[in-house]
Design a protein around this nucleic acid. Structure first.
Length: 275
DNA sequence: TACCAGGTAAAAA
DNA sequence: TTTTTACATGGT
């Protein structure tokens, strides 16, 4: 089944972050295609002319795949904005076809973010893969993320055994057991989402901002506390001088109201472009 | 061997 | 109120 996406679309470039930090059991790259469990079924996604091809062919799956591939982002509007900035314009030209993916599941995104707090993304991925092997089972090749019920029934000790810190293990279990309606957050404005998420243990501004940008697909989020983004701002805009969180946040204002795409283009540019 | 890596919360100043 | 510290793992 063929899925058309707004042109230009570069599937391999857009899914680079599922491969760069090592094999990811939840987004498994295999023989030129991405395997992912959506709606309880494994789907294989591969590049095709003007978009992607998915197998099995299914209407409901197709909608989920479109969202996974970041279809909601307004790339045309972003590109028009980016043309006004000489540095960003050059990056957008060289990353032609990049459309950042969206995380399908709120709890999965939160837990994954928590694993990635402070440690390298390779370390975080190793921990998350151990979590999947221990508390999930492959459907085909890819592993579905465990449900909220599974986490709610765990003891923090179970997660500590996988490499979570004591605080992270307690946070994940407490979040799963909390009464917050994670799906319901999609109906709230950005500030209200941040407020609710930050009330959860182990969730700070960084985690909440990436949730907005990478799970909800909100257009104008700029996670200035992110070390990778600060390094990108330093490299592309400050000739290598250190970028503070405050300085990074101030610099990002020029990319409104498309800061989410700007941030993700900069992060990807740091990894795949030479400078 | 240390030290750093896409933070957060709690303790100390 | 602002600054410092502990935390866990993987790579170099």
């Amino acid at each position: 089944m063929h899925l058309r996406l707004p042109r230009p679309y570069d599937f391999e470039l857009s899914t680079e972050r599922f491969r760069t930090f090592g094999p990811d059991l939840a987004y498994l790259w295999r023989a030129g295609g991405l395997h992912r469990v959506l709606c309880g079924r494994e789907v294989r996604i591969e590049a095709a002319d003007g978009g992607v091809r998915i197998d099995p062919p299914d209407r409901a799956l197709a909608g989920a795949v479109r969202r996974l591939l970041g279809e909601p982002f307004d790339l045309a509007g972003f590109e028009a904005m980016a043309r006004q900035d000489p540095v960003l314009r050059r990056i957008v030209e060289r990353l032609r076809g990049f459309r950042p993916p969206l995380a399908p599941d709120p709890l999965e995104h939160l837990v994954s973010s928590i694993t990635a707090q402070q440690v390298s993304l390779r370390a975080a991925l190793a921990i998350r893969n151990r979590l999947l092997r221990r508390f999930s089972a492959a459907r085909g090749h890819a592993y579905p993320f465990p449900s909220r019920d599974v986490f709610a029934a765990l003891q923090p000790e179970d997660l500590r055994a996988l490499g979570f810190s004591r605080a992270k293990a307690q946070s994940v279990v407490a979040i799963a057991r909390s009464d917050l309606d994670l799906e319901g957050l999609a109906a709230l404005p950005d500030a209200a989402v941040v407020e609710r998420l930050r009330a959860l243990p182990g969730v700070g501004l960084w985690t909440a901002e990436w949730f907005l940008a990478r799970h909800l697909g909100r257009a104008d989020v700029w996670p200035a506390g992110d070390l990778g983004l600060r390094k990108a701002v330093s490299a592309f805009f400050l000739e290598g001088r250190d970028a503070s969180e405050a300085g990074t946040r101030a610099l990002g204002e020029r990319f409104a109201p498309y800061r989410s795409l700007a941030a993700q283009y900069l992060l990807t540019a740091m990894r795949v472009l030479e400078r």
